[in-house]
Write a protein that binds this DNA or RNA. Structure first.
Lengths: 245, 245
DNA sequence: CCGAACCTACTGGTCCAACCAGTTGACGGG
DNA sequence: CCCGTCAACTGGTTGGACCAGTAGGTTCGG
């Protein structure tokens, strides 16, 4: 009741960000958006602290995170310089990137992520069918059941669908696929980032998913790959149909 | 001359690590290796600082990086808890992971990375052939020439090969592929991580790469995908042939 | 006896101030 | 003109203090 009342008042949950989070976010956006060209020196830590009215340590913590993402290169004595994220940043950047529409058109990014999902999901399904142990195959079968049971609640189905694919990717025995899957799930595939109509068809195709699980259980690598490809490719070519406001 | 002399003396460049780097490395290895189970609380910042005889700020900077990697979840007031990296860590973890053989068998990890490279490289080649603009196609052709010219120096060829694939991935117009490519290159594909004999055949196949570039230039998506698949798949199934010491 | 308020001893978050350690570039002597 | 010197940066590290939020035990009221 109370929650409903508050929602009606147009109140949103207060953003939790700590100071260093804000610094991190601002610098990240500034770098990715091109406000700083690759090779450019960032303002000194002391200067950033002064401008943002923030302690130097907060700035340093933010810089460490940027460094971890591959956005800057820090060197003692010299200035902290901006790196070309198209060259040095890893896939984890995609997790942060879905927050900013300015630079990378979010539509394109969503397409890219769906494309990569299809690419990896197909091969993961194939490998899972070929390499997974009996227990994992059973887990996949269970997961697809849980997914089907979630119908027709789209949100629950989405969640169960992710769990299902996690089982498949895990069954592929490929750690790189698993980590990439995490990056994608944590990024653009996060709730509300992908236009709903773009995946409803896929999510509602319980029969297709059941077939996929059966092929995996049978150890039919090529068949599983084909079925996965069918399931995952559709949303990529689906109409962009951006909700125009 | 001097360098040669020093090399003969078996002197290696001194490891540059800062204090917080060391803390980061130790905690990362401890977490990934399972010394801390998911959900376990990490020792408090003050305690870590005391144990490692390091200032608390250094610990905090290390923790920020772990947080960025998705290895821990910090919450004010509560303890910093370890996350299950197989669920929360992104592909960037692979970059750091190739340093530790203890947990993940490096052989398996190399195989995984090569598999993912094949998977993404194939689709990237396809998309590049279909979507790239004329300038990018020309760049691919140039890159393959530069790659062929690097023969027979394997190191140079490796570097030129990476540059070539970067052009292709860039030409695919898929930002996710580009970032994943960076993660892979920065990780296990880094110098000396992949057993040389496993890729020599691929690297020496200049004819195959020329063919790939030609197919891309012609806009033959399926052809480019097939050729890329041929080039990239071979090393995956190549003999493991680990150099036993 | 049970539940709720409270209080305390933690946790991480932030700040200030100082100093160490490399880098850079200007300056002056050779 | 070249090279060493030095001063004015840069990031790296430390100590200490305090704020803020959490968790768990204690106590008080029912």
């Amino acid at each position: 009741m109370l929650a409903v009342t508050l929602l009606a008042m147009n109140l949103r949950p207060v953003p939790r960000g700590s100071v260093s989070d804000h610094v991190f976010g601002q610098l990240r956006d500034a770098i990715v958006s091109g406000s700083y060209a690759p090779g450019d020196p960032l303002p000194s830590e002391r200067e950033l602290g002064a401008v943002l009215t923030v302690n130097r340590h907060a700035v340093r913590e933010a810089l460490r995170r940027l460094q971890q993402l591959g956005l800057v290169r820090v060197s003692q004595g010299g200035a902290t310089r901006v790196l070309d994220w198209r060259v040095h940043a890893g896939l984890d950047l995609a997790m942060s990137l879905t927050q900013v529409d300015e630079v990378l058109p979010i539509d394109t990014l969503v397409r890219d992520v769906l494309e990569m999902r299809a690419c990896i999901g197909t091969d993961a399904a194939r490998l899972c069918a070929l390499r997974a142990d009996p227990a994992t195959r059973a887990a996949v079968t269970d997961a697809v059941t849980g997914y089907a049971d979630a119908a027709p609640d789209l949100d629950q189905m989405d969640q169960a669908n992710i769990a299902l694919w996690r089982q498949i990717v895990q069954g592929s025995g490929n750690t790189a696929y698993l980590l990439a899957f995490n990056s994608l799930v944590g990024g653009a595939l996060a709730v509300g980032r992908v236009p709903p109509q773009r995946r409803t068809a896929e999510l509602l195709d319980t029969a297709g998913h059941r077939r996929l699980a059966a092929l995996i259980a049978d150890g039919d690598g090529d068949g599983a790959a084909g079925q996965a490809h069918t399931l995952l490719t559709a949303p990529v070519t689906a109409p962009t149909e951006r909700t125009r406001t």
